[in-house]
């Protein structure tokens, strides 16, 4: 079999992953239009891993971890980065092989590299979720997380979803042989206007690092957290019957948006250093409570596997 040529840029690696997972039958989605800490927060993963409906989606998700900001100076750490996320429900029996195929697609020659599946159990205290799986090592470097979801939002996953998460910058730097993320070609280096990762993100890393550590107004953030929390609960308290349309409409997604907001606001507050160790657990518990309520609501919707006839 002919081995694919080596990719030349960050975006080419993303495009190849898109093409690959598209060819394997995944719906190629777009990023969720909100600030999230990881691709798992996208409702295409969190909510869609619940209930009995089959699902297969792949997408890039810009992710923010305010505490990881290093003003663009650290070669590997960013407060804004990209995750590539694949979620297939039920997890297919050949998911490991499918995953290895994706590594070949982005130019990793499995005949020359050492790929290992090393135990790593995943748990998200804010989402009330856990699963078992591995971190995948390529020559000793973690290139992906591979997880079989067992529980999300406090609900047992039946069937089980298989989730793959690629840390795109790290993976691409490895494949392209780059030592500092800011030096990584974003588009093809032979383009009329070649752009490096740093040309696009160095300044924003500086701006957001300053914002996250010093600029963000903590009083406002605290208030927003309370607002999001209250709004989430208010939306879920509506009766399922919508008087305008006469339909059954549970506002699981709009409520979940508020849960995502609360989670990100918590991350910002954490980066600002205004949350003590004891408060930290309490905040995480509050976000988890919202995530659980949203999950409870989602499983009473059609996409969550709810069928009117089953209720009769």
């Amino acid at each position: 079999m002919e081995k694919p040529a080596a990719p030349r840029s960050f975006q080419e690696i993303i495009l190849r992953l898109m093409t690959y997972w598209s060819s394997k039958g995944c719906a190629v989605l777009q990023p969720y239009d909100m600030e999230v800490g990881a691709g798992t927060f996208h409702p295409a993963t969190t909510l869609r891993s619940l209930g009995s409906q089959p699902w297969a989606a792949a997408y890039v998700q810009p992710s923010r971890r305010p505490t990881d900001g290093r003003y663009g100076e650290n070669p590997n750490r960013l407060q804004h980065y990209y995750q590539y996320q694949v979620l297939i429900k039920p997890s297919p029996p050949d998911l490991q092989a499918l995953y290895l195929g994706s590594l070949e697609a982005i130019g990793i020659d499995l005949g020359l590299h050492d790929i290992r599946f090393v135990e790593d159990d995943w748990e998200s205290p804010t989402l009330g979720a856990w699963g078992l799986g591995w971190e995948v090592w390529c020559d000793g470097m973690e290139v992906s997380q591979f997880t079989y979801f067992q529980q999300v939002g406090g609900h047992d996953c039946k069937p089980v979803s298989g989730e793959l998460t690629y840390g795109l910058e790290r993976l691409a730097m490895y494949v392209l042989g780059i030592d500092h993320v800011m030096d990584m070609p974003f588009n093809d280096p032979a383009s009329p206007i070649p752009l490096k990762y740093g040309d696009i993100f160095r300044q924003t890393e500086e701006e957001y690092s300053r914002h996250n550590f010093d600029g963000a107004n903590t009083e406002v953030l605290l208030q927003h957290f309370l607002d999001a929390e209250a709004e989430c609960e208010r939306l879920l308290a509506f009766p399922a019957e919508d008087p305008n349309s006469g339909k059954r409409i549970v506002m699981a997604h709009p409520a979940y948006d508020q849960c995502i907001k609360a989670s990100h606001l918590f991350n910002l507050l954490d980066a600002r250093g205004v949350i003590s160790v004891t408060e930290r657990q309490a905040y995480i518990g509050r976000v988890r409570a919202l995530a659980k309520k949203c999950a409870d609501a989602f499983v009473t919707t059609t996409a969550g596997g709810w069928r009117p006839e089953a209720q009769a």
């Binding site: 590299h113 050492d114 020559d139 000793g140 470097m141 030592d179």
Partner: peptide, 25 residues
């Protein structure tokens, strides 16, 4: 000493190079 899970045509040169890079980070 790192222990790989396979033999390769380049006698582990690529694997060792990758491991060195991770070690350095």
């Amino acid at each position: 000493v790192t222990v790989a899970n396979r033999e390769t045509a380049d006698h582990g040169a690529t694997i060792l190079k990758g491991n060195l890079k991770v070690l350095s980070a």
